[in-house]
Write a protein that binds this DNA or RNA. Structure first.
Length: 354
DNA sequence: AAATCTCGCAACCGCTTTCAC
DNA sequence: GGTGAAAGCGGTTGCGAGATT
């Protein structure tokens, strides 16, 4: 025997709740209490499914709900809880009085998961995907809204990250990088590896001074590669223009030519290539590592694997760096990390050996 | 100014678990 | 213990807002 539907769906209203419906539901529950959701709509005079009424009450109408932005402290707790509980949103939400599982889940999906994935790519030795599809300038956007969080701090994050990089790496490359790098540079916990600054927007923010002197020449005209994808990337000194090659021709003094240049090649357009998916698909077709691809296909269906990353991330030596970033008063303690996300194309993983 | 596009979130869907009889 | 209803839960979708071209 099949299960009966929770309610008669014929003639029921769907979609956004109106203020009038909210008021009816609120008054009814205040008078009669929660429960009996199946019969509630009829008794209250609502043309809604009982399930819908329950959801509306639990997520938005309850008096004890805490509305407003998720604080940084809450963010950290969510991340930690998710590392141990996975997608058990109701359990996670149980740690936040006034927050709902739906709210936590949405926040995770729209904010935190992407940050985690970005961080993962920065910190994962094996993940070598060169996310050039999101390098600003290479990927010419036709429009679209910038992330709200990014909009707020549009002019601050790179400078913050620069400080972060400086603080963690201790040194910064003052000379052009080797023409043919052989190994990726990745962030480490031991402050040993200088981190290449993001290619995009560098020219907008970085000024050649102090130990950053020379960086613009490194960025302008640099050629690098991704050891696993095999693509070579060069901007040939052109601001905000990047080129992809299947092969480079080496001569005296480094790269002297390129084969099969594809201007903006897989950078291409955003169409069907969100977050550099095209690159990943190519890699998959070429026998690439499936593990490297997960971040772009599903938000969080591999949290077990992510546990390691969370640990790495949360155990990072944040001392001092956090204070430094706070000084910027940006409201985003880890904005150097957040805002280097793939949407904005600030991927650090350029595949350099410093 | 209009078109295009992305983002965030409210709401829905379907499955599982719990409860009452 | 079996059955059906209700509640709970997590994944997914649809759409309005608004930035960008």
């Amino acid at each position: 025997m099949g299960r009966a539907p929770c309610c008669e769906k014929v003639g029921l209203k769907r979609g956004r709740w109106t203020a009038e419906e909210d008021e009816i539901l609120r008054r009814y529950i205040q008078a009669n209490g929660e429960g009996s959701w199946r019969s509630l709509p009829k008794n209250a005079g609502l043309l809604r499914c009982g399930k819908s009424c329950r959801l509306r009450w639990i997520n938005y109408l309850r008096a004890d709900l805490k509305r407003g932005n998720i604080s940084r402290e809450e963010e950290e707790i969510i991340i930690k809880l998710h590392s141990s509980l996975g997608n058990r949103w109701s359990l996670i939400a149980g740690h936040f009085p006034g927050r709902t599982d739906n709210e936590i889940k949405n926040y995770w999906n729209s904010h935190l998961s992407r940050r985690i994935h970005s961080f993962r790519r920065l910190n994962n030795d094996g993940a070598s995907i060169l996310d050039v599809g999101n390098i600003v300038g290479g990927c010419k956007r036709k429009g679209g809204r910038t992330r709200r969080s990014a909009m707020k701090k549009n002019h601050t994050y790179l400078e913050i990250r620069r400080e972060k990089v400086h603080a963690r790496a201790g040194t910064f490359p003052t000379k052009p990088l080797p023409q043919k790098p052989t190994q990726k540079a990745v962030l480490t916990k031991d402050n040993e590896v200088p981190v290449a600054p993001s290619v995009d927007k560098v020219n907008d923010v970085l000024e050649p001074q102090g130990e950053f002197e020379g960086m613009e020449s490194w960025i302008a005209g640099s050629t690098t590669t991704d050891s696993e994808s095999g693509f070579f990337v060069s901007n040939k000194g052109l601001e905000n223009e990047f080129f992809l090659y299947d092969e480079v021709v080496e001569g005296e003094g480094g790269v002297t030519g390129f084969i099969e240049e594809r201007e903006n090649g897989i950078l291409g357009s955003n169409e069907g290539s969100e977050s550099g998916v095209t690159v990943l698909q190519e890699e998959r077709e070429n026998g690439g590592n499936e593990k490297d691809i997960e971040w772009c296909s599903s938000l969080d269906n591999s949290f077990e694997e992510m546990g390691y990353l969370y640990g790495e991330w949360l155990d990072w030596k944040w001392d001092g760096v956090e204070d430094m970033v706070r000084e910027e008063d940006t409201g985003e303690r880890w904005s150097w990390l957040w805002e280097s996300n793939n949407e904005e194309g600030n991927c650090l993983a350029m595949g350099h050996e410093q």
